[in-house]
């Protein structure tokens, strides 16, 4: 299956706050970042951690966030490893 996002793609993380395990840390929810690279496909931890044997396998991406977009300040970057379903595309006409 083709990757949904290419390196350089602008993405936004979902804002969801699920009752179960997730690997999308709270501080990075609803934030905009840029895809650095695909890391390889892996079982979605949100599902496998619940003991389901049929967790979907998705591409995981390294996604880079500017500190300013995460915290409102700072000049560093944070890179997180995020499953494809945590991400949505930011359209070109969005500022």
């Amino acid at each position: 299956m083709a990757d949904r996002f290419a390196p350089g793609a602008r993405v936004r993380t979902f804002r969801h706050d699920p009752p179960h395990h997730t690997r999308l840390p709270r501080y990075a929810r609803g934030k905009r970042g840029v895809v650095v690279e695909p890391e390889g496909r892996a079982e979605l931890a949100d599902v496998s951690a619940q003991g389901h044997g049929d967790a979907p396998v998705e591409q995981v991406y390294a996604v880079r966030f500017a500190a300013r977009d995460l915290w409102g300040e700072g000049d560093h970057h944070v890179v997180l490893d995020l499953w494809e379903s945590y991400l949505e595309e930011v359209r070109d006409d969005e500022r």
């Binding site: 840390p25 890391e39 995981v60 944070v78």
Partner: peptide, 12 residues
């Protein structure tokens, strides 16, 4: 110097 923080949230 630019700082990059790598948060290992998956299998890497």
């Amino acid at each position: 110097t630019e700082i990059a923080v790598w948060d290992s949230s998956a299998e890497t």
